[in-house]
Design a protein around this nucleic acid. Structure first.
Lengths: 189, 189
DNA sequence: TAACATCTAGGACAAACGACCTAGCCCGGA
DNA sequence: TCCGGGCTAGGTCGTTTGTCCTAGATGTTA
């Protein structure tokens, strides 16, 4: 199909399917069909389902890292960068409405499965957290930067969950606005 | 085993297992083993897996309703009742740390499975929302009661998600405190 | 051309899944 | 006593799951 190597196609397709249908509900056959390869070929690239999951998480970590870097380049001030984070809820609105937050839902699912990759998946949270923390430090909140980061992460997780459940876009816009106000408040002091 | 009728035992066990391991990951055999009955007997009481899910959701709705009524009886003011809601995060701390919020995680899972019971599961959210809304109305916030309810629901969902991922109890205590402060703020105005 | 590692296809496997069936148990009413 | 409905046990069906194997296609190097 596309020019990309098979292994990459598998990872990207698995990434999409894990997000849209959940990790457990996505089978080998399902991914293989979507990539249009045989199950046998599939097994040549990945020896087990856990191995794909690991690769998908690393893939997400890399993509997230790139996104954070692009924000770093786009926005001049730390406040604008944090605004970028808050606005993912609107930018990725359709996806979140249908499938929830890719980070939060994967973390929840793996927690229930008591899966060994739980820690790896949480690195996605940590990546966002540490990036936000560094932005808050740059805003002068050196002491409570970690707490502010966790607070904002938590807020956006909650909004994503409710958006996924009810699909109310007005609610998201309102919450995004409130988070931006909150950001301005703690910035101006 | 216990004196309860088999059907009730099945529902309660399924409720627990769906919460702890997720709906899809919990099989007929798993529930039957836990209740110590045969799969055949199981099928006498419930014709399909979706039927159990439906019964479990109704069971949760009933239990949640009782809990809300007990708060209504325990706490004198609407503010104290809302505080009861906020404090579930601490009261059910161990469960939430291990398995997340029963309402949010079920809603997320069913959304990914595109399951027909999605709407039923969301009634749990609605139950909390409407109850909170009525409390905010009683506090004099007639116009924006629904928004305040959704906001608080969203906040606690986010806290539950992060608590489930990182298990940081200090974070939960901090967020619970902030939500109570927020409640006081909008009450005193 | 010949040899080689890389990649692919498609089938086979046991185990587990949801669903279904039937034979028999228990126990109150006729 | 016999009957009959509520309940239980245990097995079976077809399908799907993750895993694994082998034969062959492909493409590069000698």
């Amino acid at each position: 199909m596309s020019g990309k190597p098979t292994r990459e196609q598998i990872i990207e397709t698995a990434d999409r399917l894990f997000y849209q249908q959940g990790f457990e509900h996505t089978s080998f056959a399902h991914i293989a069909d979507a990539v249009r390869i045989s199950r046998g070929n599939f097994y040549y690239h990945f020896k087990s389902k856990d191995e794909i999951l690991s690769a998908v998480i690393r893939h997400r970590l890399a993509n997230t890292g790139k996104m954070l870097e692009s924000w770093q380049a786009q926005a001049d001030t730390p406040r604008d960068r944090i605004r970028c984070f808050i606005h993912i809820l609107l930018v990725n609105g359709d996806k979140i409405r249908n499938y929830g937050c890719p980070v939060g839902t994967l973390s929840s699912e793996l927690a229930k499965l008591n899966h060994s990759a739980q820690g790896e998946a949480n690195e996605l949270f940590t990546l966002f957290h540490d990036w936000l923390k560094s932005q808050f430090v740059q805003l002068g909140h050196r002491r409570d930067a970690g707490q502010l980061a966790a607070h904002l992460l938590s807020r956006s997780q909650g909004v994503a969950t409710l958006f996924n459940a009810f699909g109310d876009e007005k609610f998201v816009r309102r919450e995004v606005g409130q988070m931006c106000e909150w950001l301005d408040d703690i910035t101006n002091q």
